[in-house]
Design a protein around this nucleic acid. Structure first.
Length: 616
RNA sequence: CGCGGGGUAGAGCAGUGGCAGCUCGUCGGGCUCAUAACCCGGAGGUCCCAGGUUCGAGUCCUGGCCCCGCUACCA
């Protein structure tokens, strides 16, 4: 019975390119788990998009003298390129600037309002007459009225750590220049204190399978400090309008609105999949497919996994569930359909941060490895491999160029790539490009020896052991286990030594090569979610017609806000993918294709070249 | 100040009260199918410190030291 798995990945903000820290933190782990579940034959929906709204984008646009929409789209298109090149296989990567997302977010707001979880309150905020807008707290600096520190932000002092009241800040100044004045403004607040018991219960129910780091940052924090009301609107002109009469010029706060994207993207995906073009978006005939999002959102059996960085834990474990529980079944009013509650997150396997050569990644100092730039010099699977074995699952990790080269050469190339290459090349040379058939033309099963059966048992147990780690989202451990199994095949080859066997007993060599090929064919599946490009190539060397995975493509969608480009994923030449997560059934006598090396060995000289690029 | 995570071989990590393990590196040996790749063996530990519970503590308890993070638009 296939499971429904929602893979929800943090929405990148449209004011910076994506670097290796972002990739290893959320996009890559999400992709690995999504691909694993696809291989198992589960129904996967993997969504995210560009977080396009908020003041930082408008300020960037002002500075560059560009239209706001152009600025967000520039980053958005860069994200689409990166995910295609790196094989981050989103079923839908969209943006928050869509008619659909506006409607869904506003409906969530109205449902919370209807259920009595919103209230309004007036407060003083810093206003820039120059820019004609209220500034976010972090864009206003001044002297702390508690400790006298001169570089305090208006909402918080980094020196004494106190939370500040913006209007009390001394000598306030705008980070973007120009005068400042205090103005009164009114906002909607989400009354989280009312939802606190529900959020606590939600977290307690999931305590057993959530990471300690994640629980500590959420349940531990709520028990210590409680949940306090938070504003959910801002004085902005670039964003989603507050759907209440008389609230012109105010938009939904980005933190409130962007997380709703996980839901709205599923709804957009279902609408788009009703047909292959944007017309389907409005086609009532495609109603059945349009309802498909419910399989992941109003289905108690569905499991939702959220892949995020540690800075986002509280939003996803506490605030987002509070929004979902608070909106409850009232949200469904948007569809004029029966009222059922929305599903809640199953797990939030948040990662810590990745540093770079011992220092914190910093875009402004260019102390970063940008995804698209790295892909101009290195293969996607080499990057994916290092980013997985070095994933900051339990604590911060460090990207070290010397280690990147060493692990690529000693593990990826030497252990796994060389294993596949040595066996396929040996087979190609001595059996003329066919799997050995033991003289029966493949009609009878091969007469395997106890040592052959024993190796295959060890390798095939990997579908359980690697699978167990993947199910628990222990990706480093899962990949290490697969690598350990590859090493077992290398040991087996050394013991059997087919290069000797073939001189005296070609049948024995045939058994060894058949066994090794079958083991590699199984290992290929275990590696596939981590290394999709090379696994697909290896799959091709084995002569299979149907690919392991589908393909990624982009599409332009038109709506009342204009048009937006999205990244999608589809099966090719089939509607349902076969279940690949099972031992190889390699047939003797099968025609193989011409093999070649899967990975490239890297020169040591790149270490200094790459280090020289940093900080410039 | 508060809260959270961490400290185990040169590096990175696992470890469920019962002989301290894994990957890489390093040293020595073997092999030649393979991208000089592969295989075997060795060396390398005050498990942050102090105290406690226990027949027995890396693991549980108490106190301390150090590193990282969160505190609400810095992934």
């Amino acid at each position: 019975m296939p499971e429904n798995i929602l893979i929800a990945i943090a929405w990148p903000y449209a004011n910076a390119e994506i670097h290796v820290g972002n990739i290893t933190g959320s996009h890559l782990p999400g992709d690995i788990v999504a691909r694993y579940h696809r291989l198992k034959g589960n129904n996967v929906l993997m969504v995210s998009g560009t977080d396009s709204h908020g003041t930082p984008v408008t300020l960037a646009a002002d500075k560059e003298g560009k239209a706001v929409e152009g600025v967000y789209k520039e980053y958005h298109y860069g994200f689409l390129d990166l995910f295609q090149e790196l094989g981050i296989s989103y079923d839908l990567f969209t943006t928050t600037h869509t008619e659909n997302h506006f409607k869904v977010a506003q409906s969530m707001f109205l449902a919370l309002k209807k259920n009595g979880f919103l209230f309004t309150q007036k407060s003083m905020q810093w206003y820039s007459p120059n820019a004609k807008k209220f500034l976010p707290d972090r864009y206003v600096e001044g002297t702390c009225y508690i400790c006298g520190y001169e570089g305090a932000r208006s909402d918080q002092c980094d020196n004494c750590g106190n939370v500040l009241e913006p209007e009390k800040l001394l000598e306030p100044r705008s980070k973007t220049g120009g005068a400042l004045e205090l103005r009164e403004t009114e906002h909607f607040y989400l009354d989280l204190s009312k939802l606190e018991p529900d959020v606590k219960n939600f977290l307690k129910e999931r305590a057993a399978h959530m990471r300690d780091t994640v629980l500590g940052e959420s349940l531990g924090k709520i028990e210590a400090e409680g949940l306090k009301p938070r504003p959910i609107t801002r004085d902005l002109d670039w964003g989603i309008p507050v759907p209440v009469a008389g609230w012109d010029g105010k938009c939904l706060y980005v933190w409130f609105e962007a997380v709703i994207g996980y839901l709205s993207a599923a709804i957009e995906w279902a609408a788009l999949s009703g047909g292959s073009s944007s017309e389907a978006y409005r086609d009532p005939q495609s109603k059945r497919q349009k309802e498909a999002w419910r399989e992941w959102w109003v289905n108690p059996a569905a499991r939702q996994f959220y892949f995020i960085g540690k800075d986002n834990i509280f939003f996803h474990t506490s605030l987002w569930p509070a929004q979902l529980m608070g909106a409850g079944s009232a949200f469904m009013a948007i569809f004029a359909s029966e009222e059922v509650p929305l599903s809640l997150p199953y797990d939030v396997p948040a990662n810590q941060f990745m540093n770079l050569e011992g220092q914190k990644i910093s875009g402004s100092r260019n102390w970063a490895i940008w995804g698209r730039d790295a892909l101009t010099r290195y293969d996607p699977d080499a990057l994916r491999y290092y980013l997985t074995v070095n994933m900051p699952e339990n604590r911060d990790s460090d990207w070290d160029w010397a280690e990147f080269v060493a692990r690529n050469n000693n593990e990826l190339v030497a252990t796994w790539g060389n294993l596949a290459n040595r066996v396929l090349a040996f087979c190609d040379k001595n059996w003329d490009g066919y799997v050995p058939d033991f003289g029966t033309g493949g009609a009878e099963p091969p007469p395997l020896r106890p040592s052959d059966l024993s190796l295959l048992a060890v390798i095939e147990a990997g579908f359980q052991s690697v699978g167990r780690e993947l199910d628990a989202v222990h990706l480093r451990a899962a990949l290490q286990e697969a690598m350990r199994l590859a090493s077992e095949v290398n040991k087996y080859l050394d013991t059997c030594a087919p290069w000797f066997e073939i001189k005296t007993d070609k049948d024995a060599a045939a058994l060894t090569i058949y066994t090794a090929l079958k083991a590699i064919d199984s290992l290929k599946v275990m590696f596939a979610s981590f290394l999709p490009f090379t696994s697909e190539r290896l799959h091709g060397f084995f002569g299979y017609e149907s690919p392991l995975f589908g393909e990624q493509y982009t599409e332009t969608v038109k709506d009342s806000l204009g048009e937006h480009k999205v990244l999608r994923y589809r099966e090719v030449g089939r509607t349902v993918s076969p279940t690949y997560w099972k031992p190889s059934e390699l047939q003797p006598g099968k025609k193989l294709n011409q093999p070649g090396p899967l990975f490239k060995k890297l020169e040591d000289t790149i270490v200094e070249e790459e280090r020289a690029r940093l900080g410039k």
